[in-house]
Amino acid sequence: MARSTPTYTPVRNYAFGFILSVFLLFSDISYGTFAPLRGLVQASNLYAQMVSRSIFENVSNLLYSFKQNRNLTQENKDLKEQIHKIRTQEFIKSKEAEKSFEIINFQKTLISSLKSKDINIFKIASIDLRNYLCCSTHKIFLQNLNQVQVLENTPVFAGSSYVGQTKSTYLNFIEVILFSDTKHLLPIKSNFFYCDARGKGKPMLISCKLNKNIDDFQNKISDAIFTSGLGGIFLKDIEIGNISAINSISINEIEVVITLKTNPLEENFFGIIGSEADEI
């Protein structure tokens, strides 16, 4: 009966590996020791993806242009290409116009909501979809090509509401933690209560526990929820979502589930108040 390893690896090597792994895991979970390293690796991955994509596009463009040259002898095809080109250009122009219009509209919303003109707009680089759809960690990366100085814990706006806070910057990317992340706490209020809502680890959902009876919450589903401004980070009275469910935990304790107003998956542009803006 084999009770020892068939290889020449002694058990102490496994024990050493086990202890080392447990130590690294504990230090990372408890203190986030390797968070900067992971952020750097993720940012490098994004860079590699962007570079490889542009190389692929250039190569495919090159191959495509060779093909086109070969077909130049056929007048009929030339004409078709011209028509195609004109259509493509018009399509691009219309898309560019739509994009500019979208940015201008978003800027107007930001200025009217946040009462500040020092607002930087960033395009989304990537969303951690794997974790966003299943797990506790909900974060996105924004492209910061102009290397704008962004402070940590600055509110991030998208659509017509806040969606999260900046966490850190890696290379030319800004890491944003979303409200639905279980590590995020957001001070909120409604017409009849104040609380700190924690992310539920599910898309667009946050919740808070209150020492109240469920009978006090009759007909409160779909009531609007606003930021309370008590944390000193977010402006108060910005609508962030609606009550979507009220669950009874015990006799005098309930959980209020709030569905957020903005879906980060549907947004292209995210606004962050500049570091030189007036203090809130």
């Binding site: 086990f18 895991l25 504990f26 390797f34």
Partner: peptide
């Protein structure tokens, strides 16, 4: 480093 949210998790399971 490439796929996980924490360092040490896959190390621990791989070694075990």
């Amino acid at each position: 480093l490439l796929f996980s949210n924490v360092i040490g998790f896959n190390m621990l399971f791989f070694i075990t």
